[in-house]
Design a protein around this nucleic acid. Structure first.
Length: 112
RNA sequence: GGAGCGGGCCGGGCGGCCGCGCCGUCAGCAGGCGGUGAGGAAAGUCCGGGCUCCACAGGGCAGGGUGGUGGGUAACGCCCACCCGGGGUGACCCGAGGGAAAGUGCCACAGAAACAUACCGCCGGCCGGUGGGCCGGUAAGGGUGAAAAGGUGCGGUAAGAGCGCACCGGCGGCGUGGUGACACGCCGGCCAGGCAAACCCCGCCCGGAGCAAGGCCGAGUAGGGGGAGAUGAGGUGGCCCGCCGAUCCCCGGGUAGGCCGCUAGAGGCCUCCGGCAACGGAGGUCCCAGAGAGAUGGCCGCCGCACCGAGGGAUGCCUCGGUGUACAGAACCCGGCUUACAGGCCCGCUCCCGUU
RNA sequence: CGGGGCGUGGCGCAGCUUGGCUAGCGCGCAGCGUUCGGGACGCUGAGGUCGGCGGUUCAAAUCCGCCCGCCCCGA
């Protein structure tokens, strides 16, 4: 199934306040259980760099989220840290996979 | 062959797998198919316009911008041509380039004096035994400084000085050429320090906000409390006038939905004509992103182009391996400016050396 | 989209209005003195491309233009 996009500021604030958090060197991931659907938000702030660098990181993160086997009915937020601008696709993928696994956001695996 | 100057342009190509936005189409949904999808700067937001609303955008003051002349343009602080000044052997480059006899102010230190004077001097007269002193003339020389009542030469004089003369520079007048800035020529007389990116004066320009402009539809709380108001609330932004004109402000409560604006335009390309050019005109042809937490991506292969290393061949080439392949991402739309940029291409021109 | 502020020794700030005087103050740093030793105190000293590049001017931290970085408002 396709994940929906997390849009409103209210939703983001709820995930920040109530969700579980795991931080790595490049990324910070938040997870919060939800009733209906799988929703995903990607945040790439100004600290990462100029528009080109931010777009590249955001596109890579969205591609990674598309490839990983995400479980249903949860809200996820992935935030990029400043180091993410210089990271390769595979470095981002490895770290995000590890963070989501710890949070129990992947299908077929319970919370760690 | 080597240095260099000025313009214009490109800024990777092909393919595979998996994806995204928009439009069209099929479909009950899921989705399928077809088309299309970043830049020369999309950037910085430094100017100018269009568009929308405020009154039909009007007057004055204040404030801001601009500044050789003539043109181009919707407009500009942009562009083109020319003039003047400065730099370069040259191609060319640089210049906020109006006014300092409207007024005010500043010109540190040094120096006698910074815009009006006389320190050392020079010359004359008087006094004195000398050293020197006093009075007067002078501004050539010395010294200070970024800058000292134009420069050089001759005459002249007690010494000197535009005091006189010649040339140059500046100023004023006249004439000629030019649309003009200005240039050239003749005549006159010698009066003028710099700074206006100091205040200022003069000419010209500027109403305010900004697509979250502005308009339509829908949902929902509530018809609550306080205050101002035709003796004028508010529009209105710095002020005043003028105009429109009946609602406006605060507290409390609710909503963060959809549609339009939204992309065909001062548009791109080609040809011809006018113009030195910027540019304008005519004809033909093309349709070229439109999101709304914001699409144009991810991974891989081959080729191209640079650089490095190794080997072969032999000055130019080939093979293999490695590294690199910039700056940067539309958000209402245009015209400029500025800044960033790996590498590469084209055109015109200058100087030097060599050969013929 | 619109607007504002800041950048000066290691740190925090003045000076900019009205250009020139020595770029100053506090903390910190180094040396010496004082003390049995340290702190405090006293004396002395080092340390600054005034964010960068141009321009105006005799002369620029200061005036003007462009650029860079940081921060903050309003819708």
């Amino acid at each position: 199934m396709k994940p929906q996009r997390l849009r409103s500021d209210r939703d983001f604030q709820r995930v920040y306040a109530e969700g579980a958090r795991r931080a790595g060197k490049l990324l910070v991931a938040y997870r919060c259980p939800a009733e209906q659907a799988l929703r995903v938000g990607v945040v790439v702030g100004r600290r990462v760099g100029k528009a080109v660098a931010r777009n590249r990181v955001r596109r890579r993160l969205r591609e990674i989220l598309r490839q990983l086997p995400l479980a249903g009915a949860q809200d996820l937020v992935v935030t990029a840290r400043a180091q993410a601008a210089g990271a390769s696709f595979w470095e981002l993928r490895e770290e995000l996979w590890g963070l989501l696994k710890e949070l129990g956001a992947l299908r077929g695996e319970g919370p760690a």
